[in-house]
Amino acid sequence: MKQIHHILILPDRVVVDDQPVTITTQGADIVTELYRRYMNDYPKFFKMDLLSRLGLVAADILLQTEGAERGAERDDRAVVIVNRHASLNNDRAYEATIQPDNYFPSPSLFVYTLPNVVAGEIAIRNHYLGETACYIAAQEDVEPLIASTFNEHTTSVIGGWLDVTDEKEFIAKLSIWTH
């Protein structure tokens, strides 16, 4: 198994295939800056929580770097997300809408209270009908989990470590993996 492209997004740094990317913002604003620069054609982005935004943008930059034709349905590429904090950042935002004195549960926040939804968002954007998975695990287990995904159907994986602690602390360390 090898990584053919990789990306790192931190609150103060973006690196694609070992090349630093110039950014003008900090924190969660970086994700929006990257969206405007690299995508800017997917308004659904603004409805998403930070975990989904981060994963979607990171995946899109990787796919642009890969340079293969996009848009056709395919089921040979899996999306595998591994992290520590699940969807906790968005869970807290949803929780704030169900306080006894302020009870207005928000369906649009609730749907992002699952950590696998980001994998679904990447699948929807890219018409991937293959496997999507989310694991909460140790960072050392990213590679074994991604390796275990390969089989006769799945011949490449986009994924890796994607963790949001809060708006100030997050990391996307994703790759495109092939045999």
Binding site: A119, G120, I124, Y128, L129, E131
Partner: peptide
């Protein structure tokens, strides 16, 4: 065992 996404809608 098999896992597939609909690539259609999140809910």
């Amino acid at each position: 065992g098999s896992i597939h996404n609909d690539a259609n809608h999140i809910t």
